[in-house]
Design a protein around this nucleic acid. Structure first.
Lengths: 185, 185
DNA sequence: AATTTATGTCAGCCATATTGACATATTTTG
DNA sequence: CAAAATATGTCAATATGGCTGACATAAATT
């Protein structure tokens, strides 16, 4: 299980009588198969939502990731973005250049440190970022609507607990900071 | 936000005083930013676990996905796998061939329909699939351990609700069927 | 017998990632 | 101040995992 592409239907199974070729099954009883697979399918659908919109701009998911985090963290450094995305600067380079060239992101020289190229979403970039987030929010709110109250908090707690322990605080701080950044405006 | 690569630390933010280039923020108040980003980071760490193991076999996430579903659904048809992964047979071909050539998966002619090449994990393949699932299960169980009882059920409900409505039943059936398949052995 | 289905394969292309080397400007340090 | 470190960018080559289109084969269905 890893990242995924997009949607697909679960096909009818042939459930034939053939036995598995392997021998040793039984002690995988405790494996959390349900969560592993639900996470796979849920995430697949979740990231699939924006794809149609991105297609119209000839953008891929790489662009989405960059735009999302830049929009959420106005003035972030290139190095910070690289750390969040965990890609090389060469990989970021191409995608970022396209976003800048097409006016979705601007880079401004750092005030204290003029080597830095701080990243900002333009109005155009923010509009796209919000459109994409709205699609995903729609799915999330639909889910919370189906589940009872408290579902949001439960999901937040579950997802937080799934993050690497040594990184969790940083993530929470980052989310809180971004919230502030985007709320004050 | 979309699929991701692997781990990375959240860097300190420069939180500079620069204002965003865009103008319109404020009505994104209802966007579920927290869930969007938590899902991103949680999934990133979740799929990152197996990467180190896969590296030793010179396998990628594509191999993991194939091996996972074949192991969970012994005797599945190639066409079913294509539908679950939502890739083309040409894409599957390369990865599947490597798994077959290296003895992780075997293909058997269908009994009723001899055109079919039913897929089975070998003992070797199952061992690897279980090893990878164990890593992910470890993370999941750690999370459920931190949260109280009922966390498993809550997570299951949340993730299920996040799946496309028209696909949800199929996913649940698929998971249940796989559980049966691997339990009877 | 003709058609459809399940699968495989060849060939070429694209997006996104990688490593390594090197360049430039700026800040920090000895 | 000179040297070293840092932030960023860029060139080139390469790998992975997707894609489309075309075509092939065997077996099932009509």
């Amino acid at each position: 299980m890893a990242d995924i592409n997009s949607n697909a239907k679960i096909p009818p199974q042939n459930s034939g009588g053939e036995a598995t070729a392997g021998g040793a099954q039984a002690r995988d009883a405790e494996a959390a198969w349900d969560i592993i697979e639900l996470l796979f399918f849920a995430y697949r659908d979740f990231v699939g939502d924006p794809d149609a919109v991105l297609l119209k701009y000839a953008f891929g998911r790489a662009h989405h990731r960059v735009l999302h985090f830049v929009n959420r963290n106005p003035g972030m450094k290139v190095a910070d973005l690289l750390d969040i995305l965990n890609i090389t600067k060469q990989s970021l380079g191409r995608v970022l250049k396209q976003l800048v060239d097409q006016g979705f992101i601007v880079q401004k020289e750092g005030a204290q440190d003029r080597r830095q190229r701080l990243l900002f979403a333009t109005a155009k970039g923010e509009a796209l970022a919000l459109k994409l987030a709205a699609l995903q929010t729609e799915r999330i709110n639909r889910a919370f609507g189906e589940l009872g109250p408290g579902a949001h908090e439960a999901a937040r707690r579950f997802l937080t607990a799934m993050i690497d322990g040594d990184n969790r605080e940083g993530v929470l701080r980052q989310i809180a900071r971004a919230d502030r950044a985007k709320t004050r405006g």
